[in-house]
Amino acid sequence: MAAPLSSVGRLCSLTGRTFAPVLAAHSWRSVCPAARRSYITASTGSNVQFKLDERTAHSSLDLFKKDTGIIYRMLGLDPSQVQDNPERFRDWAVVFGDQKVSGGRHYWEVTVKKSLEFRLGAAEALMSRDDCVGTNASSWVFGFAQRKWFAMTNNKAVPVALVGKPDRVGILLDYEAGLLGLVDVEKPRIIHSFRAKFHAPLCPAFGLWDGELLTHCDVEEPAGLH
């Protein structure tokens, strides 16, 4: 992203605590050793079939519909009452999918009509749980806040030209091609994309600060996307 997007730099209140603006830089702390991670086998074939991983879910997020949907609870649970494990995001309302991708081309969709602030994309499976998706070089997301879309990685955002707010969008991940795209499912077409060299397994990644999201990984990639 070229420059910080001021429209998404408002304060977030998570589990009753007030944090710095979402775009603010965050210091890196040590990531738990890989030996303590226990993800399901990596997907290298066609569409990754995932559910949301409760082990990673911040205490303000509830999963529903057989772990394919997320609801944001403004107060959420007291973090001390949530099972502690090295997978969980402690400060940011983030959750990962329970599959990791290390190759292939994958497509999923997300119903976004019931949220006004969210982030969708992919992140390295071993990304620091002290960071929010989009604030480091290990995550690539498309977000919506203050009625505007943006693309964000490495703590920088660029506006995404998208008329209105669709009820549902698609995410296209081509690991070998280094492509992550936001898809207009009505056209269909890629609205905006990241180009990067992926060096580590990736997980579907979601941030939510309002309402709810519903994921759909049992859908086919629309024809003609590049």
Rank of each mutant, 00 (worst) to 15 (best):
D67P: 02
G69S: 13
G69M: 03
G69Y: 02
G69W: 04
I70E: 08
I70Q: 00
I71K: 15
Y72K: 09
Y72E: 06
R73K: 10
R73Q: 14
M74R: 14
L75Y: 12
G76F: 01
G76S: 08
G76P: 12
L77P: 05
L77V: 13
D78A: 09
D78W: 10
D78H: 13
P79R: 04
P79V: 05
P79A: 09
S80F: 12
S80G: 10
Q81S: 15
Q81R: 11
V82S: 11
V82E: 09
V82F: 11
V82G: 09
Q83P: 07
D84V: 09
N85R: 10
P86H: 10
E87V: 05
E87P: 01
R88W: 08
R88C: 01
F89K: 06
R90A: 11
D91N: 14
D91M: 13
W92Q: 05
W92Y: 13
W92V: 06
V94C: 15
V95C: 14
V95A: 11
V95F: 05
V95Q: 02
V95P: 05
F96V: 00
F96M: 12
F96H: 12
F96T: 01
F96D: 01
G97F: 04
G97K: 04
G97D: 08
D98K: 02
D98W: 02
D98E: 01
D98R: 01
D98M: 04
Q99C: 11
Q99H: 14
Q99D: 03
Q99T: 10
K100R: 14
K100F: 08
K100S: 12
G104T: 00
R105T: 14
H106K: 06
H106P: 05
Y107W: 11
W108C: 05
W108K: 02
